[in-house]
Computed example of a mutant assay.
Amino acid sequence: MAKVLVLYYSSYGHLSQMADAIAEGAREAGAEVDVLRVPETAPDAVVKAAHFKTDHTHPVISGVDALAGYDAIIVGSPTRFGRMSSQMASFWDQAGGLWYQGKLNGKIGAAFTATATQHGGQEVTLFSIITNLLHFGMTIVGLDYGYPGLQGVKEVHGGTPYGASTLTDGDGSRQPSEVDLGGARYQGRRVAEVAIKLFG
Rank of each mutant, 00 (worst) to 15 (best):
A26N: 05
Q118H: 13
E40M: 13
N132H: 12
A50P: 03
D71C: 04
R80V: 01
Y147L: 11
A2T: 10
L134K: 06
A72T: 10
S165E: 06
F199E: 02
E40Y: 13
E178N: 11
I196D: 01
I130W: 10
M84L: 00
N105Y: 10
Q175D: 09
A195P: 03
R190M: 11
G13H: 09
G30S: 04
L126N: 09
A50W: 15
Y12Q: 14
G159R: 02
Q17G: 06
T41L: 13
S86Q: 00
L98T: 04
G109W: 02
L15S: 10
A184T: 09
L150K: 06
F112E: 01
T160Q: 01
E155C: 09
T168V: 05
G170T: 09
Q187W: 06
A21I: 11
S177G: 11
W92L: 14
T57S: 10
L150T: 14
G152L: 12
Q175E: 15
M84V: 00
A2E: 01
L104Y: 02
D144H: 05
I196L: 13
Y147P: 03
E32F: 07
D65Q: 13
E32I: 08
E193H: 07
Y147T: 05
Q101L: 12
H157N: 03
K107C: 04
Y100S: 08
V141Y: 04
G182Y: 07
S173H: 09
R190D: 00
A72H: 07
D171V: 11
V64S: 07
A19D: 06
E40T: 14
W99M: 05
R27K: 15
A49E: 07
Y100N: 15
H135G: 13
T131F: 07
G170N: 14
P43E: 14
Y147G: 03
M88P: 01
A114E: 09
V194G: 00
K197A: 12
Y147Q: 05
G152M: 07
Y147E: 10
D71I: 15
P59F: 12
T117S: 15
V75H: 06
D171Y: 05
Y145R: 13
L104C: 03
Y186S: 03
H157P: 05
V179A: 14
G63W: 12
